[in-house]
Each structure stands twice: as C-alpha cells, then as structure tokens.
Computed example of a mutant assay.
Amino acid sequence: MELNESIVALKALAQDTRLALYRLLVQAGPEGLPVGELAARLHVPDSTLSAHLRVLRTAGLVRDERRGRVIQCRADFARMDALLAYLTENCCAGAIACAVPVPCKPLPTHGAERHETLPRTRQRR
C-alpha cells in the first residue's frame, strides 16, 4: 500500500458512523451483511448509509455484491491487512522484540460465517 492509499483509507475510517459500519462488516466475516441489516443495526437512514458505504468503497475497504434484490456488503480483509502492514512497517525500528502483524484469517463456522483476528503478541522493553 502506498502513502496516498493509506491516507484515503484512514480518512474513510475517521468518522464515527463509517468506523462503526466497518467494524460491523469485519465482525460479520467474509459473508458480510445486507445493506438493510446494516442500516437497522446502525440506526441510520438508507441514504446516509449509502453515502458512508460509497466512501468506504472508494477507499477499497468495502466490497458489495447484488444478490437478487439484496446488496450484500463485506469488508475487504486483504485491503485491511495491507493498511495494517503499512502502518506497522518498520515497527520499533525493526527490533526483534516487535512482532510482525499476523494477517487476518476469517474462520467459517457451522451455518454462518464468523471472523476472528488472530492476536498480535508484542513485547516492549
């Protein structure tokens, strides 16, 4: 990820509704959530949600797919990992005590998809 791409992504997340929206999509895992459910959970009008989704989509953080009459949105985990890697590149000046970020690995569960971010161990001295 380049500097300008990271700035666009961070600007997209630097708003309370968009950050809450993105966190919901990350928690939902690779299957994502329908737009209607996102609007209901966040208590925002459809037009407001649409504007927020557009910003996240432009930043490359969210993808959507039409399934009949339903639009299913999901977080782009590869893009999220790229942003985190960019932010932590050369962490602690490359000290061995600083752990390398572990990529996000969505884990499927029975019947529904679930997302789990693996813990990142970090030792500061």
Score class of each variant (00 low, 15 high):
Arg125Ile: 09
Thr117Gln: 08
Arg18Thr: 05
Lys11Trp: 12
Glu31Asp: 08
Leu118Lys: 10
His43Pro: 04
Lys11Leu: 09
Leu49Lys: 06
Cys73Gln: 06
Arg122Thr: 15
Ala95Pro: 05
Lys11Ile: 11
Met80Gln: 10
Thr48Ala: 05
Leu84Pro: 02
His43Ile: 09
Leu3Glu: 13
Gly68Leu: 01
Pro30Asp: 15
Pro106Ala: 10
His115Tyr: 11
Val35Arg: 10
Asp64Val: 02
Cys91Asp: 13
Gln27Thr: 14
Arg124Asp: 15
Glu2Tyr: 01
Glu65Arg: 00
Val62Ala: 03
Ala82Pro: 02
Arg67Tyr: 14
Thr121Ile: 12
Thr17Gly: 10
Gly32His: 00
Cys98Gln: 10
Gly29Met: 08
Thr88Gln: 08
Val55Ala: 05
Lys11Gln: 07
Asp16Gln: 13
Ser50His: 10
Val8Pro: 08
Gly68Met: 05
Gly36Glu: 06
Asn90Cys: 03
Ile71Pro: 02
Thr109Met: 09
Ala14Ser: 15
Asn90Trp: 10
Ala75Pro: 03
Pro101Thr: 06
Arg66Phe: 15
Glu113Met: 11
Gly29Asn: 02
Ala20Cys: 04
Ala112Asp: 12
Tyr86Met: 02
Glu37Leu: 03
Cys104Thr: 15
Val35Ile: 10
Glu65Asp: 02
Leu56Cys: 07
Leu38Val: 06
Leu10Val: 12
Gln15Thr: 04
Arg69Asn: 12
Pro119Ser: 00
Arg23Lys: 12
Gln72Lys: 09
Asp64Thr: 01
Lys11Asp: 08
Cys73Thr: 04
Val26Phe: 00
Val35Ala: 11
Gly29Val: 13
Gln27Asn: 14
Ala51Pro: 01
Arg23Asn: 13
Val102Glu: 12
Val55Ser: 00
Ala75Val: 06
Ile7Leu: 07
Arg41Leu: 07
Leu83Cys: 03
Glu89Val: 05
Pro119Val: 00
Pro108Ser: 03
Leu53Trp: 02
Gln15Ser: 09
Val100Arg: 15
Gly111Thr: 07
Val100Trp: 12
Leu61Ile: 07
Pro45Asn: 01
Leu10Glu: 06
Met80Ser: 11
Val35Gln: 14
Leu24Tyr: 02
Arg67His: 10
Val44Trp: 10
Glu37Thr: 07
Lys105His: 14
Gly94Val: 05
Arg57Asp: 08
Ala14Ile: 12
Leu33Phe: 05
Leu38Met: 01
